[in-house]
Computed example of a mutant assay.
Amino acid sequence: MAAETAAADRWESVLDSVVVYASGALCRRRARGRVPADGRVRLTGLPRVADAGSLRASVLSGGARVTAARLEPEAEVRSRSDLPGLRLRVDRARDAAEALRQRSARQEARIAEVSAVRAVPPPLQADEPHRRTPTDAWFELADFVDERLAALHARSADLAEELRLAEHELALAEDALARASSAVAVGPVTLGGSAVVTLEGAAEGAEVELEVEYGVPGAVWVPTYRLTYRQGEGSGTLLLRAQLAQRTGEDWSGVRIGLSTADLQRRTDLPQLRSLRIGRRQAVPAASGWREPPAGLGDLFSGYDAAGRPPQPRAGRARPAGGG
């Protein structure tokens, strides 16, 4: 029973966007699920190289708030035999999303058809007398159209919500298939990470959408410029391209990529703020014993240096005093 509960609290996440800096990248993943009784959920799919100190979690919808978030490593056993099941899951999710799109389109067509309903009086003949307008019938028709449109719009909103959930399930299935098929087979066990997030302020079973942000090393980008100019023309074309390389363990195919020239790991020290004292004015503290050297100190021994080394006595035998 405990294993089933732990498995129910695991939410699959989808890589939504990546911002690549001069060195490193900042990734954002999204996940959706229902809040368990204890409020703790585990978002899977994070890479093994994710920086635990940069992990941030926020609630996008659902009315809850994040009180704690931490990164935990985990190991996953993968096999090539899982690919057929993942492809089947993608096909089913794609068919369900396409069916909901068609139903939503038919619903919009019904709304347009009912909205076009108007009361049109029959044309009068030349020899017919003037007829009174049946206002009661017009009001009944307007009430019928309003009631019908209200029911159709409510059903359209339900279909839009079902379509959004189906597209989210399709994105999860495609991400799982991409990670399983493009992973480098380095062994039977794949190392990764997961974000354990604690939620408060939401009722048990409430649907919540989360976003986690984390930094990863091993990603760089380099700009390249190409200038095209034809002889005799007064202008040219400057083309800017970015070459990106990453070894983070994640598949960035189909993900929104942003580029920044800033340094993701730049160190910033807090400024030292001077204290402010409120009260009576006090005397200025005495200066310390250190002071600036006097001017001209460097020229104090200039004459000695200019004279050079003093003459040295020659080596020889000393004569005794009074010798001949």
Rank of each mutant, 00 (worst) to 15 (best):
L55G: 09
L55Y: 01
L55H: 01
R56G: 05
R56L: 10
A57F: 02
S58Y: 09
S58E: 08
S58F: 07
V59T: 00
L60C: 06
G62S: 00
G63P: 00
G63E: 03
A64P: 05
A64I: 14
R65S: 09
R65H: 11
R65K: 07
A68Y: 06
A69R: 08
A69C: 08
R70K: 12
L71Y: 08
L71I: 09
L71P: 14
E72Y: 14
P73K: 10
P73D: 12
E74D: 15
E76Q: 14
V77H: 09
V77F: 05
S79N: 09
S79W: 03
R80C: 12
S81M: 11
D82I: 05
D82P: 08
D82N: 12
P84F: 10
P84S: 13
P84R: 11
G85F: 01
L88E: 15
L88S: 10
V90W: 05
V90Y: 01
D91Q: 08
R92K: 04
A93L: 05
A93M: 12
A93W: 06
A93V: 00
A96Q: 13
A96P: 07
A97G: 13
A97R: 12
E98G: 13
A99M: 05
A99G: 15
A99K: 02
A99Q: 09
L100M: 07
L100S: 00
L100N: 00
L100C: 06
R103T: 01
R103I: 09
S104A: 13
S104F: 10
A105W: 06
R106F: 07
Q107E: 01
A109V: 01
R110F: 04
R110N: 04
I111N: 01
A112M: 08
A112R: 04
A112F: 03
A112Y: 00
E113I: 00
E113C: 00
S115Y: 00
S115T: 02
A116S: 04
R118A: 15
A119R: 05
V120K: 11
P122R: 01
P123K: 03
L124Q: 07
L124M: 11
Q125G: 07
Q125T: 11
A126G: 14
A126H: 04
D127L: 03
E128T: 03
P129L: 04
H130M: 12
R132T: 11
R132H: 03
R132W: 00
T133Y: 13
T133P: 13
T135K: 09
T135G: 04
W138I: 13
W138E: 14
E140F: 06
E140W: 11
A142L: 12
A142S: 14
D143K: 15
D143G: 10
F144K: 15
F144V: 15
V145E: 10
V145W: 07
V145S: 04
V145I: 14
